Simulated assay, not measured.
Amino acid sequence: MDLFGESENWEKKLEPILSKYKDRKHPLEYQNTYQLMVMVILSAQDSDANINNIAPLLFAKFPTLSSLIDTDIETFMSYISKVKNYPTKAQWIIDIAKKLKEDTEIPSTLQGLTALKGIGRKSANVILRENNKPTEGIITDLHVIRVAPRIGIIKESKDGNKVEKDLMQLLPKNIWSEIGMAISFLGRETCRPKPKCEACMLNDICNYYLNEVI
């Protein structure tokens, strides 16, 4: 639902955050696609900061997918034991390594990525965006789930897939690749659970600010 009834204007309304955050690298501190894929899987239900903290030792020990194929899962888990749900995530990553075998075999499509264990649409969209691959969806993390309804683009929902679908129906495809992370960065920096509305560059068009704050 377009609360403003002007879906054709959303690209213009969101231009301030698109301009500010366009091409900004994801907060996960990865060096290549293999590292990004592993870190995205590990970050589910966890913080980017925590994954960044464990990454250096993890990738020093396991620098490629092929280095994971024959590793003992207990050894691998010892490097990610501070990550939420690490036993399950460890098995997913080992299974992916055995399936793909080489870093060069990591898929570059939404369908290919989501066929792998532990990678849903959100994770796949992050990997595609960071690798400048063709857009097939909109990154919808917990910040987007909170902020997009607050702005007034869509109705509130806790279902990330529904939020993504609603955004895709309303926003032009030419901004899909960047708008998810732009909204996410806004949520990380300004539109926090307790929002800093006065400092927000979208407060002149924000449904929450216009109707709840002023």
Rank of each mutant, 00 (worst) to 15 (best):
residue 118 G to M: 05
residue 9 N to A: 07
residue 193 P to L: 08
residue 129 R to V: 02
residue 25 K to C: 13
residue 100 L to N: 13
residue 57 L to N: 14
residue 119 I to M: 06
residue 175 I to T: 04
residue 197 C to D: 08
residue 117 K to F: 03
residue 115 A to G: 15
residue 185 F to V: 03
residue 116 L to E: 08
residue 147 V to N: 04
residue 52 N to W: 01
residue 61 K to F: 13
residue 173 K to D: 07
residue 46 D to I: 02
residue 96 I to F: 05
residue 37 M to F: 08
residue 24 R to V: 14
residue 52 N to E: 09
residue 130 E to A: 02
residue 24 R to E: 14
residue 23 D to P: 01
residue 84 K to V: 05
residue 208 Y to T: 08
residue 160 G to F: 15
residue 155 K to A: 13
residue 197 C to T: 03
residue 3 L to I: 10
residue 200 C to R: 12
residue 8 E to S: 13
residue 88 T to K: 04
residue 22 K to Y: 15
residue 15 E to D: 02
residue 110 L to W: 13
residue 1 M to A: 11
residue 204 D to K: 13
residue 89 K to H: 04
residue 110 L to I: 15
residue 210 L to S: 14
residue 137 G to M: 10
residue 170 L to E: 09
residue 192 R to H: 13
residue 123 S to M: 07
residue 211 N to P: 12
residue 180 G to K: 05
residue 205 I to C: 10
residue 55 A to K: 03
residue 176 W to P: 04
residue 98 K to D: 04
residue 178 E to A: 00
residue 6 E to W: 00
residue 102 E to R: 07
residue 203 N to K: 15
residue 23 D to V: 00
residue 117 K to L: 10
residue 127 I to K: 09
residue 111 Q to L: 12
residue 155 K to L: 11
residue 186 L to A: 04
residue 181 M to E: 08
residue 20 K to M: 03
residue 44 A to E: 05
residue 83 V to R: 00
residue 145 I to Y: 03
residue 99 K to Q: 14
residue 122 K to P: 02
residue 138 I to R: 03
residue 117 K to V: 06
residue 97 A to H: 09
residue 138 I to V: 14
residue 120 G to I: 00
residue 178 E to V: 00
residue 49 A to D: 04
residue 70 D to G: 12
residue 27 P to A: 01
residue 5 G to P: 14
residue 171 L to G: 09
residue 70 D to A: 11
residue 131 N to R: 02
residue 163 V to E: 07
residue 23 D to M: 12
residue 14 L to D: 04
residue 191 C to P: 02
residue 126 V to M: 08
residue 171 L to V: 02
residue 44 A to K: 12
residue 154 I to M: 09
residue 166 D to M: 12
residue 41 I to Q: 00
residue 21 Y to D: 04
residue 30 Y to P: 00
residue 200 C to H: 04
residue 93 I to V: 11
residue 208 Y to L: 09
residue 144 V to I: 10
residue 4 F to C: 01
residue 43 S to R: 01
residue 205 I to T: 13
residue 66 S to A: 15
residue 86 Y to C: 05
